[in-house]
């Protein structure tokens, strides 16, 4: 049985640790905050560096030899941006998220319009939009 996370899950967990912290953390402090499935310190550093390259984490040098890491955006801002990215061009084909708004294409709407519009006259609700 494997106990490892995939890359995306570990990044999400690291972001949570940074968001929950009261200030910037060293890689070792980040690692210490894990109670289950504790990642290796080298993995933590590698993933934090990768996240830094992506712009989700900033690294600052301390007076000693170590570095501290913190999230570049607040949790709310990050979630909003992630959601915008996830929903941007949310191609219904992939069905990754079935939205209440429907995500019907213009062709789909034409198809549906043909069913509900009486000949020559738009249906109630269509005319008002």
């Amino acid at each position: 049985m494997t106990t490892s996370r995939n890359r995306g899950e570990l990044e999400a967990d690291l972001m949570n640790v940074l968001w929950n912290a009261s200030g910037p953390l060293t890689a070792r402090e980040v690692q210490a905050s894990f109670t289950v499935k504790v990642p290796a310190i080298t993995t933590v550093i590698t993933v934090l560096d990768r996240m830094r390259a992506k712009g989700s984490v900033v690294r600052e040098a301390t007076s000693g030899r170590s570095h501290v890491f913190s999230a570049t955006r607040s949790r709310v801002l990050d979630i909003t941006e992630t959601m915008s990215t996830a929903l941007h061009g949310a191609d219904d084909r992939t069905a990754a998220l079935l939205l209440f708004a429907g995500a019907l294409s213009e062709e789909d709407r034409q198809f549906l319009r043909a069913a509900i519009e009486p000949a020559g006259e738009p249906a109630d609700g269509l005319a008002s939009e």
């Binding site: 949790r75 709310v76 979630i79 996830a86 949310a90 990754a96 998220l97």
Partner: peptide, 29 residues
């Protein structure tokens, strides 16, 4: 896309709506 969406869930809290439980995410969207 699922991976990006799953990241949203890390900031979610459960909310009961009627008899269902959904995951509530703080967002202006």
């Amino acid at each position: 896309r699922n991976l990006r969406l799953l990241m949203l869930l890390t900031g979610a809290v459960p909310l009961t709506v009627g008899t269902r439980t959904v995951l509530l995410v703080e967002s202006p969207l």
